[in-house]
């Protein structure tokens, strides 16, 4: 895997962890252990996303650095081989 793929993989891992934790919190909204775990991983994900968007372009239409070009369409979509 190249650097971009490795960083993307880390984001995918944190995304999945947050997805699973959110689902648990949906039915346990006051569970402190889960809330602490959520906050820790949310911070991790934010750092990874900031790094990724700075180097490789937007991950959402609200993200990225809106610089010389609209990376949303100049960079590949995730299913492109």
């Amino acid at each position: 895997m190249n650097e971009q793929q490795k960083l993307m993989r880390s984001i995918q891992i944190q995304n999945f962890i947050l997805q699973e934790t959110a689902l648990f919190l949906d039915s346990h909204p006051y569970c402190r252990q889960a809330l602490r775990y959520y906050q820790k991983h949310r911070r991790m994900r934010e750092e990874l996303v900031e790094m990724y968007e700075a180097r490789y372009g937007q991950l959402t239409i609200y993200g990225g650095t809106a610089s010389g070009s609209w990376h949303w369409v100049t960079e590949p979509f995730p299913w492109e081989v």
Partner: peptide, 10 residues
């Protein structure tokens, strides 16, 4: 919001 990633790589 759409995020430009697949949940699992393909």
């Amino acid at each position: 919001i759409y995020e430009k990633t697949l949940q699992y790589p393909v």
